[in-house]
Amino acid sequence: MSTALTSSQTRFLRGQAHDLKALLQIGGKGVTPAFVAQLEEVLELHELVKVKVAAEDREARDAMIAELTSSTGSALVQRIGHTAVLYRPSKEKRQIVLPRG
């Protein structure tokens, strides 16, 4: 189940993600089960995560990002170049309070 965001929530999350550093990077092996498991843990801890995608062409990057969002149930907040911002609310303790609407 993917997280759906409204435009105001996406705008809010983009602002929150602005100062974040990329915590994870996908290399030449692509999206592996180990990488997905690590991303799950990081999303549970931080909720909002920047991921660097080291694929050469745009279609490959888009495919990897789509695979990440579907396998983790996260939402793509923003994608600029090789960097994607993913959001998924924590199951245990939520830290980010989204605006309504």
Rank of each mutant, 00 (worst) to 15 (best):
V51H: 03
V51N: 05
V51K: 00
V51R: 08
K52Y: 04
K52V: 14
K52C: 07
K52H: 07
K52D: 06
K52A: 10
V53L: 05
V53Q: 02
A54T: 13
A54G: 11
A54V: 11
A54N: 15
A55H: 10
A55Q: 11
A55E: 09
A55M: 05
E56V: 09
E56L: 12
E56K: 13
E56I: 09
D57F: 02
D57M: 02
D57N: 11
R58W: 08
R58E: 14
R58P: 01
R58A: 12
E59W: 12
E59H: 10
E59C: 03
A60Q: 06
A60P: 01
A60G: 06
A60T: 13
A60D: 04
A60V: 06
R61W: 01
R61S: 01
R61N: 03
D62V: 05
D62P: 00
D62C: 05
D62K: 08
D62S: 08
A63G: 01
A63R: 01
A63I: 00
A63Q: 03
A63N: 00
A63Y: 00
M64D: 05
M64K: 09
M64H: 14
M64E: 02
I65Q: 02
I65K: 04
I65T: 11
I65A: 01
I65M: 03
A66I: 03
A66M: 04
A66G: 12
A66C: 01
E67K: 11
E67Q: 08
E67W: 04
E67F: 01
L68K: 06
L68I: 07
T69L: 07
T69K: 10
T69F: 05
S70K: 06
S71G: 00
T72F: 08
S74Y: 07
S74D: 02
S74Q: 07
S74N: 07
S74T: 11
A75P: 04
A75Y: 06
L76W: 04
L76H: 01
L76Y: 06
V77T: 09
V77Q: 11
V77L: 09
V77H: 11
Q78P: 02
Q78E: 13
Q78A: 07
Q78V: 02
Q78R: 12
R79F: 10
I80E: 10
I80G: 03
I80V: 15
I80W: 11
I80L: 12
G81E: 11
G81V: 07
G81W: 07
G81S: 05
H82T: 15
H82K: 15
H82S: 14
H82W: 12
T83H: 13
T83R: 15
T83M: 14
T83C: 14
T83S: 15
A84Q: 10
V85K: 13
V85S: 15
V85T: 15
L86V: 15
Y87E: 11
Y87M: 13
R88K: 15
R88C: 04
R88W: 02
P89K: 13
P89W: 06
P89D: 08
P89H: 09
S90Y: 11
K91W: 07
K91L: 14
E92N: 14
E92I: 14
E92Q: 14
E92A: 13
K93Y: 12
R94E: 03
R94A: 09
Q95P: 00
Q95E: 11
Q95F: 15
Q95A: 10
I96K: 05
